[in-house]
Design a protein around this nucleic acid. Structure first.
Length: 570
RNA sequence: GGGCCCGUAGCUCAACGGUCAGAGCAGACCGCUCAUAACGGUUUGGUUGGGGGUUCAAAUCCCUCCGGGCCUACCA
């Protein structure tokens, strides 16, 4: 039995994520976790909310709540939605947890001892009206290059020129609009990633089987310009993990917190501690410490492409720099973006479908199937309602759902609601079994390689094989001349339903559970060989005709939703 | 400005230097009637964005042009 540690990029606390976020990290991670569990392997699947930083503080202020309270509420909201999508986290933690506080501070101490932390004094813009330092993107003004009036402090959106906030004409705070800004000196800690460039570069070079998307982004950062740059890991904020050297004070850093991108990945580890502290597990170190049993763990991370630099460089720098035997990631699966109907999903403009809205409209399985079978693996992908309706109706309703319906209803009307006796497999059945044997192995291969779209296509082909078989065997015809043959055929078909439930569970867990229930069985063992898997339901075993497994999306619904999600979230 | 990715049938995608560039959907035709008017079979459809080059052989490698996207380190 293998052991799989699986993490999804942790979603930011601020607001509800859209389907593009979901398909880029949590959903494929869940697919992989469910698959590995299904294969009988030991899995620890972790995710959390990323709670620190300026946007969380501002959102809390806007909501009129203390930031801790706001984050606690939003965490519960996200957890509820995650349950709605059947994301099977072993634990859904919080980067603001006490465990993460301790661990982040401990890492900082270790890195400092290793000479990898440097204090630097720098000048940042302070807004008196807001009472805070402003990140470059929170400063707007007139572009000195093109005269655009809403240029951001880091870059002008009009002429794309990169800017420094001090270059802006009439700079103002994006938060309050205040122009009472002044540069102030402030001291910050930097992680000296540049000292680890060689080590990181060698490590990336050793990962020859990683997606190009992953390694090319890492190499760009390693080699661009002067090479990998040191990175500031502290901020002048109230909400965050206080800068401490382990248990001790960090002189000169009072009142400052660690930068979210330092503490967020460490939460992957802290989350395992939370999992234990919540009473769900026994020993987190055997997943994370190679000196305490984690040496045989395979660790896979899932994320959108925007997260790649932090997972390929910054976090590994933290791990390696600590000099402690922490588990390093073995495989990084990264995704491109999902676009919405000809443009981008937009959180600010409410364009596209957000996770909570998706569940209001249709059950999770519909979304899971479409999103996974169209996952943006090789390039950006596009969601359109036409494509969604077409794919879901055809694949889930017509191919799979209707197969279940035709088999169970035929059996009920001819033999009653139990697996009928009589007959034996002939050439046609042996051919089907051989075909399925090949396809199941191909499916496993794609799932092992995390080739999500290919796995979905193979699973669909497995469903289609059932319809092909039925059409060929035609039990409705053989029933008239040779009822025993019809009984054997339908017995096989009923067993196919159970097999489909087992194989499909990683993609569509609710439908799979419904099918298992209809077949009145809880044996969900992964098929070691197809012949045996197709004899699990014995003669005389009772079953029920399930309700419509997947209803179809109508043209009216499609048109309605298309209009509803075009922009401006209510 | 720099870097990376992408452009293949009406649509969504395969093919990663080597048999006539393949699937699914949509379209057309035929069959079946157990079923959610569902299923099965056959079939139409492509100068692989344009141009040039390397090679016995190019969708695939190189150059160039066109188009789209992403990243560029203080949003996270």
């Amino acid at each position: 039995m293998a052991r799989h540690l699986i993490t999804s990029a942790i979603p930011y606390i601020n607001g509800i994520k859209h389907l593009g976020n979901l398909v880029g990290s949590q959903l494929p991670a869940d697919l992989f976790a469910r698959y590995q569990r299904g294969r009988g392997h030991e899995v620890l699947f972790l995710c959390a909310t990323d709670e620190h930083g300026t946007p969380a503080e501002l959102a809390a202020a806007k909501a009129g709540k203390p930031v801790a309270e706001y984050c606690a509420e939003m965490h519960e909201t996200q957890a509820e939605i995650a349950r709605g999508f059947r994301l099977s986290f072993d634990h859904f933690g919080r980067s603001s947890s006490p465990q993460n506080h301790r661990l982040t501070q401990a890492f900082a101490a270790r890195l400092d001892e290793a000479g990898l932390i440097e204090e630097r004094v720098e000048t940042q813009i302070y807004s008196k009206a807001d009472g805070r330092y402003l990140p470059d993107r929170y400063i707007e003004g007139t572009c000195p290059n093109c005269g655009f009036e809403s240029a951001r402090g880091d870059q002008c959106d009009n002429c794309t020129k990169q800017l420094d906030p001090v270059d802006l004409i009439e700079p103002r705070s994006v938060i309050s609009g205040s122009t009472d800004l002044e540069p102030r000196e402030t001291k910050h800690l930097y992680l000296r990633q540049s000292k680890m460039r060689g080590e990181l570069s060698d490590w990336i070079d050793s990962k020859t089987d990683w997606p190009v998307l992953t390694t090319s982004i890492a190499r760009k950062w390693l080699n661009d310009g002067d090479g990998l740059q040191d990175r500031g890991i502290t901020r002048d904020l109230d909400w965050g993990i206080p800068v401490r050297k382990g248990e001790a004070e960090w002189p000169g850093m009072e009142g400052k917190v660690f930068y979210v991108w330092f503490d967020a990945p460490i939460e992957y580890i802290a989350c395992a501690q939370e999992w234990v502290d919540a009473g769900k597990g026994e020993d987190w170190e055997r997943w994370w410490r190679t000196d305490k049993g984690a040496d045989d763990v395979r660790y896979t991370q899932f994320m959108g492409k925007d997260n790649v630099p932090f997972h390929t460089l910054s976090f590994p720098a933290t791990i390696l720099g600590s000099g402690e035997p922490w588990k390093l990631v073995d495989y990084i699966k990264s995704f491109n973006y999902l676009n919405y109907d000809g443009g981008q999903f937009s959180t600010s403009r409410g364009r596209g479908v957000f996770m909570d809205q998706a569940l209001e409209v249709l059950p999770a399985d519909y979304w899971r199937w479409w999103l996974l079978s169209h996952a943006p693996e090789s390039s950006d992908a596009e969601f359109t309602w036409e494509n969604f309706q077409q794919s879901v109706n055809k694949d889930l309703a017509d191919v799979l759902g209707n197969f279940v319906s035709r088999v169970t209803k035929f059996c009920r009307s001819k033999f009653g609601e139990e697996v009928p006796a009589g007959g034996a497999h002939g050439d046609r059945e042996l051919a089907l079994i051989a075909d399925l044997e090949r396809r199941v192995r191909a499916y496993e291969g794609h799932m092992d390689a995390i080739e999500v779209r290919k796995a979905a296509a193979e699973l669909r082909a497995i469903w289609v094989a059932g319809n092909e078989y039925l059409q060929d065997a035609a039990p409705w015809a053989s029933f008239k001349t040779d009822p025993e043959a019809a009984a054997m055929q339908i017995r096989l078909a009923l067993n196919l339903i159970r097999l489909y439930a087992v194989l499909s569970a990683p993609f569509i867990p609710d439908a799979s559970a419904q099918l298992m229930e209809a077949m009145k069985i809880d044996d969900d063992a992964w098929p070691g060989n197809v012949t045996e898997a197709l004899s699990v339901l014995p003669v005389g075993h009772g079953f029920a005709v399930p309700d419509v497994t997947f209803r179809k999306i109508t043209d009216e619904e499609r048109a309605d939703w298309h209009a509803r999600f075009a922009g401006i979230r209510s």
